[in-house]
Design a protein around this nucleic acid. Structure first.
Ligand SMILES: [Zn+2]
Ligand SMILES: [Zn+2]
Ligand SMILES: [Zn+2]
Ligand SMILES: [Zn+2]
Lengths: 121, 121
DNA sequence: TATGGAAATGAAAATCATTTTCATTTGTGG
DNA sequence: CCACAAATGAAAATGATTTTCATTTCCATA
């Protein structure tokens, strides 16, 4: 597994909000940076593995990436415009842990996303 | 926009839970039903438009469909052996709904999975 | 029943994001 | 400088989904 190219992270920061791999690539192209699309994909993947960025899916299935805080959280995403709210999931953390333990599971983790239509859509 | 082929809906019902377009198509093939992949896609899309089925995305981006109103539940999955327990998610249902409403979202849905190591692993 | 147009169908081609391959370049310790 | 590993990226492969478009099926009406 390769390390992330720092320019990719820098570009994602500059993009603000979510950006797809293709968008990060195009942005770097426009800025005159020389980089391959493959490296952009590899770097983003590496950043996801390191939990430095979050990855979600647009409605059309394209993966979108964004810097995220270190604290564990979940997302409330608008299905239409993609607006995203970070959620501190106190209740769900306990729920997942309890359910896991009730069934004798160890090393219990979870995923959760909430989606809907935001007030503007 | 075309209407949904009733055999597609019937197959999705029979599949139980989520199924991708490709999976529905393959299932129909195996059952000896003659249908085109295009029609499967069109029918599923039409069912989504009519809000008869929900559509989500797998981690790999593939769209998966399921009947709305089918008993909603979540899964507790063993990371090692794959054993799966179906969970009635009372607490999380309310949590997701509340969080969505607090932020002015409509048509709020959610996904949630719990994973860990089962007692045998 | 015949007929004309609308809707449905599906095979094949086109799209498009993402992954894989693999040859080349770059970096680094010895 | 040399050897070797990691990084890079162009090109090809993959795979889901969409589009095209010619053909078939329906259906209302004469
Ligand atoms: Zn919105
Ligand atoms: Zn959580
Ligand atoms: Zn297990
Ligand atoms: Zn639920």
């Amino acid at each position: 597994m390769s390390r992330s190219n720092p320019r990719v992270l820098s570009t994602l920061e500059r993009a603000g909000g979510f950006a797809s791999a293709q968008e990060v690539y195009q942005l770097m192209q426009r800025e005159g940076q020389s980089i391959g699309l493959t490296t952009v994909y590899r770097s983003l993947q590496s950043l996801v593995n390191d939990k430095i960025v979050d990855v979600l899916r647009r409605d059309d299935g394209e993966a979108i990436y964004r810097l995220c805080g270190e604290t564990h959280h979940h997302h409330l995403v608008c299905k239409s415009c993609g607006e995203t709210v970070e959620i501190e999931g106190g209740a769900i953390e306990k729920w997942a842990l309890n359910v896991g333990k009730e069934h004798g599971f160890r090393e219990v983790g979870h995923t959760a996303e909430i989606f809907g239509l935001c007030s503007k859509c």
